[in-house]
Write a protein that binds this DNA or RNA. Structure first.
Lengths: 246, 246
DNA sequence: CGTAAACTTGAGAAGGGTCAATTTGCGTGG
DNA sequence: CCACGCAAATTGACCCTTCTCAAGTTTACG
């Protein structure tokens, strides 16, 4: 094993972690400098192009990751080819199913995605010595559970128009989570293509397209090309999404 | 504070916990006898009739519970009255959203339900002193997340017939989790009425009823009255549910 | 600037919803 | 124990939203 400069003062934050968002808002936020050093020794950064597979379904889980940038879709595939996106993850989310050797869900890049990966064993070791890390992972699991249940309501009870509006509202909300609702228009690039949106909403591409056209014609959104969306009023979009919180 | 017999030997398991399933398969399984004693001092058992509300949506969370018997439905209600069941919980599941003072989800009894409740503060205190307890809660959150995502696939991509079959398969699987698939017929009582099944599957009562009739006429299930179901072959039912795991 | 992928639009079909009328099941009280 | 009455469930007829299939059109990219 080669000694590294960082070993000398292991209260120093590793170079690779210095500018990393996961250290602030992600799971690494609970680690002390020496734990960060331990983790950073086994990490490696990867970049995936859109539609590349980060984690295959059914395969053995060998490593976990933090999303540094981009959007990841979690998908379930049926035997006959039907597909459903069961979750979307954004930076600096933790990626991977803890405490299980495999999962039926695959993770695919929706946009170009940058991740910081580390072996399964490293995470499990850190969890054992740091209850705060498990707490952070627990918190993220609960957040994802809240989001999944929100989405169950959307899939089960909303119309196609409401579903598409809900999706746009979801994406817009992720652009700037700090932003309070309706301080002027908001513009963003859709991280998903129509086919992905359809797989997320349990609709067909055609229905998604028609509903987006409707939203455009009614002035609730504006489009530049097919991906750049402007929402003049988030309140109006929220109303179109049939948000149940009044 | 009154002294109790159990304080003398706090390695003794409290009377109320002795026959409790939550001590074996539930979250209490991680607690040592003295922690059980501490918890049991603040617990109280409650029985709710079917359709009674255990936890109201939006209200402040004052206590958590373990389900001792019965089935609990977690529901989301929209402003216009549309309703969706976003989760079902069985004994000995933990009930309540940890680390949050409120939730938009209400918990209602589907059947008669018996719970063991304790104040929020007690749980939080125990979590602070016992990482194993948090690990157990984390595991349950991950299990619920897996189930929620499974259900997202069902809601988003399955037909009405497949949805109803999936629901029946889900319930049948919960009757005896240890049972291996297809060792003869299995009989059980449906914990949900048609309206609840509809709210769980994102369908109407009428569609659920029609699909149940279809399953009955095709011999995949048999009915006694409206609630008692016999499944001659779980494999056949599983196939009807379009289980994607081949 | 050409090509393929992504997206939109249209027409017709179908699955599931809506409304309405029965029928069944079941607890309660006579 | 039976009859009543109500809630739950079933069934039918019709309608509407979404899907399917089939062109077109636009966009992105080499």
């Amino acid at each position: 094993m080669s000694s590294k400069r960082l070993d000398v003062h292991n209260s120093t934050i590793p170079q690779v972690c210095v500018a990393c968002e996961a250290r602030h808002r992600g799971v690494c936020g609970t680690l002390n400098p020496s734990q960060l050093v331990k983790l950073s020794k086994t990490t490696s950064k990867h970049i995936f192009a859109a539609d590349e597979e980060l984690i295959p379904a059914g395969g053995e889980i060998r490593h976990y990751s933090n999303i540094l940038s981009g959007v990841v879709k979690l998908t379930r595939l049926m035997a006959d080819g039907r597909q459903q996106i069961v979750g979307l993850q954004f930076a600096p989310d933790f990626l991977g199913r803890p405490f299980r050797s495999s999962s039926d869900i695959s993770a695919e890049a929706a946009t170009e995605v940058q991740v910081c990966s580390f072996p399964r064993a490293t995470l499990e070791e850190l969890v054992r010595e740091s209850p705060e890390l498990e707490h952070m992972l627990h918190q993220q699991a609960l957040k994802e559970l809240d989001e999944a249940r929100e989405w169950i309501l959307t899939l089960g009870r909303k119309t196609a128009a409401e579903k598409v509006a809900s999706f746009l509202y979801l994406i817009a909300s992720h652009i700037d989570p700090e932003r309070s609702i309706d301080v002027g228009p908001i513009q963003f690039e859709l991280p998903l293509k129509r086919a992905d949106i359809a797989d997320f909403l349990g609709l067909t591409i055609e229905t998604v397209s028609r509903q987006i056209t409707k939203l455009r014609k009614s002035g609730i959104i504006e489009l530049e090309g097919t991906r750049i969306v402007t929402v003049p009023s988030m309140t109006v979009l929220q109303r179109a999404s049939a948000a149940d919180i009044i």
